[in-house]
Design a protein around this nucleic acid. Sequence first.
DNA 1: GACAAAGTGAACGGCTCCGTTCAATTAAAC
DNA 2: GTTTAATTGAACGGAGCCGTTCACTTTGTC
Lengths: 220, 220
Amino acid sequence: MSTCGSSANNECSGPRKAGRPSDVTKRQGIIDMAARHFFEHGYAATAIEQIAADAGVSKVTIYNQFGDKRALFAAAVACECEKLRGHFSLDAMPQGTIRERLTAIGEAICAFLSRPEMIQFDRRIAAETETEPAIGEVFLDAGPRRMKHGFAAYLRYCAETGELVLDDPELAAEQFVSLCKGMDDLERRFGAAVTPENFERRIAGAVDVFLAAYGVACHR
Amino acid sequence: MSTCGSSANNECSGPRKAGRPSDVTKRQGIIDMAARHFFEHGYAATAIEQIAADAGVSKVTIYNQFGDKRALFAAAVACECEKLRGHFSLDAMPQGTIRERLTAIGEAICAFLSRPEMIQFDRRIAAETETEPAIGEVFLDAGPRRMKHGFAAYLRYCAETGELVLDDPELAAEQFVSLCKGMDDLERRFGAAVTPENFERRIAGAVDVFLAAYGVACHR
DNA sequence: GACAAAGTGAACGGCTCCGTTCAATTAAAC
DNA sequence: GTTTAATTGAACGGAGCCGTTCACTTTGTC
């Protein structure tokens, strides 16, 4: 479904190697299925043979293409992070008052972060980061930091248009996102059920506090 | 070193069983070593034989006392959560202006949460919560929720003395803690190094924002 | 001292799974 | 058609580890 594996496949300069070329769709199928298993059941609890079976592929093919279980896991993580990159665009900015826009943004961010797949992905990456610090780094760059910088740029823009009064957009971005998340992502990481009624109140509270600190009304 | 295992050991009513009594210090040693291994290397990566060896105990003794690997893990989690309970007291409240007090509290909370053992414990519990939801629940009650309620009570007290203006202490408590943490606990969960310079700025920023929203100055 | 239960050490069965090897098959490039 | 390389199925070696059994020792209580 995704096209993550195309990053290192462009061998344009090399002469076309003779013989049967490796099946790209198979490779992608393996990565997709590996991601599914790794992020659902954890690294240790996932058997390569199972991935192979579910991807309709021989186990040997996996070892030929990736060489190692860890390498396959790394590929799956990289692919998933690549998908993440597409999720932070500033194109479709909501309209309305600054309060309405912040509310919409807060809702979007929370909805994005509280998807069950996201929670599980978070858990897995965190657990594996210990044995493979590079994995955590890749995720941080593809996800949280990217989101933070994008949002900070928007806040800076708002400051330039005079809708907000702030001198440290990065800090303000962190603060707003943290306010929106509250302790809810924590609760969810530890299995608590989602509480939609708290959701609204939390976002509204976040916007209130944020505007109290950075809104123009307070600084007149 | 800790005395967590004493919760279910009070068999006061039963007649003293004949024969050799089970060694409580051994039991505690097993739990301590189990916690060490489980939280450092993960559940799956921990071998019971290793725990037994490091605790100076036979593997059979572990199976006699706990019956199961999962049960041993659960005992270790329960013990660690018990330790957590002692860490949230409102006794030694700092003095000074409300700003100084909030700053001190924020620093204490962040210092407590960013201890490496805490980060690892967090990761492990989150990962195992999936297969054993009860574990996550136990942790939430012993840690985050407890801290939140305790701090909310303090905020309510501050509101009663007129130092703060707020009508939802629980929400405000969440907001303050979230502001203090920022995205730093996230970064640390994914292996990023600690940045002491950001630490100060983040706490100061949190107090600024919080007081802008809930301080008496803004509501006069 | 007799008894009963707890602890020990060693060995074992059984299971899962990683990673490899090998001969056979398939599919593209030339 | 020939060549080259990818893919496959099956089987294997080896490792790690869970949980059990058993005979034996230790350490308390009665």
